[in-house]
Write a protein that binds this DNA or RNA. Structure first.
Lengths: 187, 187, 187, 187
DNA sequence: GATGAATGAGACTTCATTCAT
DNA sequence: TATGAATGAAGTCTCATTCAT
């Protein structure tokens, strides 16, 4: 059985992605979680702290998903493709989490301090890009720029699939990753 | 002198990018615009219609900015670079408009119908991409996917510059566009 | 007809003296005043500002009541008695105002700044005491101490009468004022 | 070491004088006392009973302080002065208790029944005043009026000293008591 | 005796909107 | 066109208290 705390977080994710932060009153989270109003404030000091917490937990989860299986004995390009697929799979498996993280990535609703602290979950990914540049495999662009372009590409494909604007075929999938790779690889 | 209607729209843009839609009460727009509460409702039926209107006007403005100067006698790649630069310049010249359009591109706050209607301002850009594919210059990916990847790349660079996360040099600028081009061109 | 603003102030006085500040919810003031909840906030920014305003208005009113008729051609002691009676009459005529001013005189609920500003209504009274000291009629005690003792004496008598703990006769009234006078006069 | 019960009472006194009854939530008393919420309800049935108890204990303590040393072989006036000083000393030694007793003397928060019961601690003081009247030393005013005027005078001086509005010198102290005596003694 | 998670009524306040002038 | 007093539903959060352990 889920703890009340986790139940509240899950309900919050569902409602906020569906309705947006301000269109999701605490009263609705309370009702859907089937807890008393006081209970939510027992675990989270305020609505802001509630979504800060949700953001942190999801950011950590995504950071871990990205580097899944990455320690295999495969070459750089294959690892690039693997990470791309890992991120895409995370979105596919957790569309709500994708939506939430997209919406609040640049939102003033999440305190800056929270955002900075959660950067730490992306150290492995950052190291991967950095090593690619050092090895002369990747273009010499700022590491964070490459990471953001990469992330943006995955998100763009996933969003369109998710909204039904295009259909996902194996070919499209591979071509899009290839396009992403071509944008940063040298030659 | 600015009409009251336009004054209200401008104030709305400023406040909404700074505070977000729900944290920007009509009362604040009213106060900062120095009009009476009745006046705002004379021009816009509701808060929703106000931002629908703002969205439409900005979307149109951006659509026009993109194709500025595009009818010159230059080759395809040069046009690709020009459009990239046009979009980037529009963001640089209008950072608030960039922010607003980014925030509300995927927001449920803008009615779907409004979003669809404003697609028409991007016909020229769409035609440009389509012709590139037909001519065998661009990869055979769905047109809208290419457009979104393209838009995403420009936005990613601009956002990082704007937030001060990286510094814009001529070299970085050209390299990033080149990276964007490499992701879609054939060969 | 009373303005909504004044109606709210009057209702507030009645409820707060009866129930106390914290036991008087805004919702009750709203209901008894028969206005909309928004209306109260149109005139007063917060509950705190509402009672600050009430305090200020009553303090001013009491300040004026005290010096009523004082410019007559009567001697010092007679003026002392007159002021005593003026204050006592103000309490008798406005028992709720007495109660409110008593309860909030030393309350942290009224901002210090508000208290200081309202001292100005007691300048004439202060001058009267000061001149008494200078003329050698009154004991050489700090002016404000004399004022507070004086005020305390009037309030003590009135409170007991008001609570029905003793009965007011002309003799008791005169004796009490005489007692007050004897405490500060020289000889 | 203090019992948890007494610890709670002491914390309550401190918080309530600083913040006021309604601005002092049970949760704060609980936190500052470092006890569990259940514990406070083990000793006191409700918040009301908690302050009723506090009131009673302090009222008794003050009653005892007043008559300290009064059985010496000194004359009536000297006893009057002694009681005055006893009360003033009690305030000086226990400023929080003074504040609490002042604030709640006329408060509807303390049940009437509690107030009446605690009158018994002031029988000796009452007897002292009554005998003064019978002996023809004091003015023939109602006993309780004299007691209240007396108490009010001590409180007025103490409050001003305590707030730093005037400075306490030996001369001022003696003069103020003399003033208090002059207000009730015959001649 | 002691704990603290859980409760839910109710507090203050905000806000989009209306309408008589 | 323009005004701004008035509305009242709804929002976030607090708080005294309970009860299973």
């Amino acid at each position: 059985m889920m703890s009340k705390r986790d139940l509240i977080l899950q309900t919050t994710l569902e409602l906020i992605t569906e309705l947006g932060f301000h269109a999701t009153p605490m009263s609705l989270i309370i009702k859907k979680s089937d807890v008393a109003s006081g209970t939510i404030y027992h675990y989270f000091k305020s609505k802001e702290e509630l979504i800060d917490t949700l953001y942190s937990e999801l950011k950590e989860e995504m950071g871990k998903a990205i580097i899944n299986n990455i320690d295999q004995d495969i070459n750089y390009k294959e690892k690039f493709f693997l990470i791309w697929k890992n991120l895409f799979s995370f979105f596919t498996d957790n569309p709500k989490k994708f939506e939430f993280l997209e919406d609040y990535a640049n939102s003033p609703l999440i305190r800056k301090e929270i955002k900075e602290i959660n950067q730490r979950h992306y150290e492995p990914a950052k190291n991967f890009i950095e090593s690619g540049i050092k090895l002369g495999i990747l273009r010499d662009l700022p590491v964070h720029l490459i990471m953001n372009l990469f992330f943006g590409n995955v998100a763009t494909l996933f969003r369109m699939i998710s909204l039904g604007e295009i259909e996902l075929t194996n070919e499209l999938f591979e071509n899009t990753i290839q396009s992403s790779w071509d944008s940063v690889k040298i030659n």
